[in-house]
Simulated assay, not measured.
Amino acid sequence: MAYLEEAKGAKRHAPAALRNREPILGILKQELPEWGLVLELASGSGEHALYFAEHMRGLEWQPSDPDPQALASIAAYHADYNGEGGGVNLRKPLQLDAASPNWPVERADAILCINMVHISPWEATAGLFRGAAQILSGKNLPLVLYGPYFEQQVEPAPSNLQFDASLRARDPRWGIRDAEKVDTLASEHGFTRSARYEMPANNLMLVYRTA
């Protein structure tokens, strides 16, 4: 995800976050539990975590990212929210690489991952489901993915084909994934896809749940 420098300190701004946050929030209100801890992987600028924490105050939000600049941006938004904003349900960010076998989180009630699967090696998605299986310890707990996907029997949007080509040109390990391949990976770790939502700009939200 591309960031634009903000005038204030370490904060970064992701234009896509402003465009898609309301549609994503609408689905999260349907799919996430009313209470508990939500772990967000690849939080990027931190704007999503801030927005969702503001609008779902019954949930505690744990943002994370492997990138130091992203972590600094998240921490800056966290400081404002927990200071001037009066919020208490947004935690400080954790450095977490989805591909790592050891996550700095012992348990969660839900996991959210926005725009990571196509901008990372496949090993990161495999690590995402492996780690999620370890920390989502209850039944019917959600793992929610957002981003572009290719699907069998669905004609791909030309913009997604172009985007996929540009991603692979930047890094051959990146690219839009086949939803069915993600489903297979999910099942290997005890997850079943429970919902599919069409989102703006030819994106999808895929919801997987523990058995």
Rank of each mutant, 00 (worst) to 15 (best):
I74F: 10
Y208G: 04
G127A: 07
K181T: 11
V144I: 15
E188P: 02
R168D: 03
M199R: 00
E151T: 05
N203R: 02
E22S: 11
H55Q: 12
A79Y: 10
G147L: 03
L28W: 01
D183S: 03
P63I: 08
Q30F: 01
L4E: 15
S187T: 14
S187H: 14
P200S: 07
G131Y: 09
A98D: 02
K29R: 15
R168L: 04
P68K: 00
K8G: 08
M205E: 03
P101N: 01
R107H: 08
S45A: 15
A110V: 03
K11T: 12
N203S: 04
P33M: 09
P15M: 01
L167V: 02
D67T: 08
Q62L: 15
L90A: 12
L37R: 14
A186F: 05
Q62I: 10
E40K: 13
P142I: 01
E47S: 14
Q30E: 15
D183W: 02
G44F: 11
L112P: 04
P33S: 11
G147S: 02
Y149G: 00
D171Y: 05
G9E: 12
V207M: 00
H189E: 06
E5C: 00
S137I: 12
L59H: 07
D183T: 01
L167R: 05
M56G: 09
A76G: 09
A53P: 13
G131M: 04
K181Y: 04
A14G: 07
L96A: 10
Q162Y: 01
R209K: 15
I176K: 01
T192W: 00
P158K: 05
A17I: 11
G44N: 09
G131A: 10
A2G: 15
G9A: 14
L128V: 08
Q69V: 13
L4H: 14
G46L: 13
Y51H: 13
A211L: 04
G83I: 03
M1V: 13
A133S: 14
I135Y: 10
F129Y: 04
Y3K: 07
I176V: 14
H189T: 07
L161Q: 02
I135S: 09
A70R: 09
P33A: 10
E84H: 12
T125R: 02
G85V: 04
A169C: 06
L59G: 08
P172R: 02
I24Q: 01
H13L: 14
A169M: 08
K8R: 14
Y51T: 06
V105T: 06
L185P: 02
E40I: 08
L59C: 11
Y146E: 04
P156I: 09
Q152Y: 07
R91S: 09
G131E: 07
S100V: 02
L128F: 01
S45Q: 14
A157C: 08
P158G: 01
L90D: 05
